[in-house]
């Protein structure tokens, strides 16, 4: 095994830092999307600190692995991850959502390490399909990742991209579905029920792996399974908790797109996350 490989405990520590920074950014900006940032922190930590072949010193290396954050409102988590990974200084994070910072409210191409601007749902998966096709055309061995939301998959364009992914046998493409059960107006089961997602995506010709999206070993082993799977793209159906780690945000649609309203709530969030 690679000696530089971080232990599960170290990855968990990174995830904790991502969560803390996300909350700090959203609180400083007095706006932004904490819920879907907290739910995806473990996946981001495992990808960026263990699984992806990347070099922050050379963010345009053609052989690098690439990730598209299709649910572009999870910008706090992605920006925090990229800065912790060394793409840019952490001191820039408080500029989030403010003039004249590049750290736009939604994921912005131009921030080092970001591979595509996103924020309008349902488009990032198509972008990832395009990147996976280009990689195949060029005979590169890199891997393409995308992160999509369980509300986001209500967009028809997501299913159009699922079709293309299997038609072109994009086994270099791995997609995480952040199955946190909450969208903007409320719970996904109420807004637009979509049972049997793994079965549906499998019927579109994809390899589907179901995991606990907060378990570092499960995230890692699902990525290995995706690498081993030939001729099919992989969807990793990651069961998560929206707002994971902050008690009053967990499973609470209110904190999809709201910052902690008071200093007390902010302090409570930081305290809860720090002691995990």
């Amino acid at each position: 095994m690679d000696s530089s490989r971080l232990s599960d405990a170290k990855i968990r520590e990174k995830a904790k830092q991502i969560r803390l920074k996300s909350i700090e950014m959203v609180y400083t900006a007095k706006s932004g999307h904490p819920g879907g940032s907290l739910s995806i922190a473990d996946v981001l930590a495992t990808l960026y600190f263990r699984e992806m072949k990347i070099d922050p010193a050379n963010p345009v290396d053609p052989d690098r692995d690439m990730l598209v954050m299709s649910k572009g409102h999870a910008s706090p988590a992605l920006y925090a991850t990229l800065s912790l990974r060394g793409y840019f200084p952490e001191t820039l994070l408080p500029g989030f959502r403010k003039l004249p910072s590049k750290l736009e409210g939604h994921v912005h191409y131009g921030v080092p390490g970001v591979e595509a601007s996103t924020g309008s749902l349902g488009q990032g998966l198509g972008i990832a399909v395009g990147m996976a096709l280009a990689s195949k055309l060029d005979g590169r061995k890199n891997r393409i990742y995308a992160i999509i939301g369980d509300g986001e998959i209500q967009e028809g364009s997501i299913w159009e991209s699922f079709m293309a992914g299997s038609k072109y046998r994009l086994d270099n493409l791995t997609v995480f579905l952040d199955k946190n059960g909450v969208q903007l107006d409320g719970f996904t089961d109420d807004i637009m029920p979509m049972p049997m997602i793994p079965e549906r995506v499998r019927s579109f010709g994809w390899n589907v792996v179901e995991i606990d999206g907060h378990s570092i070993p499960e995230i890692s082993s699902s990525i290995s399974k995706a690498r081993e799977c030939k001729d099919k793209p992989t969807l990793i159906y990651a069961k998560t908790v929206k707002g994971k780690g902050v008690s009053y945000m967990e499973n609470n649609p209110k904190y999809h797109g709201n910052a902690p309203e008071t200093e007390e709530l902010y302090n409570q969030a930081i305290k809860e996350l720090s002691t995990q």
């Binding site: 749902l121 349902g122 509300g151 986001e152 209500q154 967009e155 028809g156 969208q183 903007l184 107006d185 807004i191 637009m192």
Partner: peptide, 25 residues
């Protein structure tokens, strides 16, 4: 899926049978 922001939720609460939240579609 933006009724809480567009404020069609006010109508939706009063007349749920004539309000259709189509999801992010």
């Amino acid at each position: 899926d933006l009724s809480s922001s567009t404020k069609t939720s006010i109508f939706g609460k009063k007349f749920p049978e004539r309000f259709f939240n189509m999801g992010i579609s």
